Simulated scan of single mutants.
Amino acid sequence: MCYCLFMDIDLYLQIHFVLLVSRQGKVRLAKWYSAYSQKERAKLIRELSGVILTRAPKLCNFVEWMGLKVVYKRYAGLYFCMCIDQDDNELEILDIIHHYVEILDRYFGSVSLLSLQAYYILDEILIAGELQESSKRVVGRLIDAQDSLVEIAKEQASLVSSIIAQATK
């Protein structure tokens, strides 16, 4: 079992936002933990995508940007980006990104096959921009429980639809 950096995470580590951006610059996931207007979000995504996508692969994965720090890592065709304060620990964020990617890989089999479920998984790991759950097993159990609830709801909706269809004949 490997030791993860975020086991001793600073309690005041604040993630401002999480972005997953494709190599073509399309946003695949955006989660905001600080207040930004729609206009600010669009500008921020456009500028930050331009900065990260044009960086050489050999450069470090930390960028000082607009008084903040952006930590990013490329997996498959996606850039996983997290924005933090200047004095926060970049290595902790890289570990959180890797943790998230490992859970996505377990759930989807490939990071490139993201869906809306990726938001739910992120919400199990981070709450209000702070690390909530570091255990992959716990997150896996929570995801499985959510999937079970969705299946039960689908079955119940199907049953209700068939009852309504029979009643209206």
Rank of each mutant, 00 (worst) to 15 (best):
I97R: 08
L114D: 02
A153R: 14
V160I: 15
A42F: 01
I84W: 09
R23K: 15
D95E: 09
R137L: 13
D10T: 11
G140Q: 03
Q38S: 01
Y33K: 11
V150H: 09
G25S: 09
L19M: 13
L44T: 10
L59I: 13
L114I: 01
L13I: 12
Q156K: 15
V18Y: 05
Y36H: 08
K43C: 00
V63Q: 10
V160S: 02
R141F: 10
V71S: 10
P57R: 12
A128C: 10
A165Y: 08
A153G: 04
S37K: 03
A30R: 15
S148L: 14
A30H: 12
T54V: 09
M66D: 15
G25V: 00
E102Q: 13
I164C: 01
I96W: 03
I52L: 12
E133R: 05
A165D: 03
W65K: 08
F80K: 07
V111E: 07
A76C: 11
E155H: 14
I121H: 08
Y107A: 05
F108W: 05
D87F: 07
A157T: 13
R46L: 04
L53R: 06
D85T: 11
A128E: 01
D10H: 13
G109I: 06
G67R: 11
L113V: 04
A167Y: 01
I93H: 03
L104S: 13
E102L: 14
A167V: 06
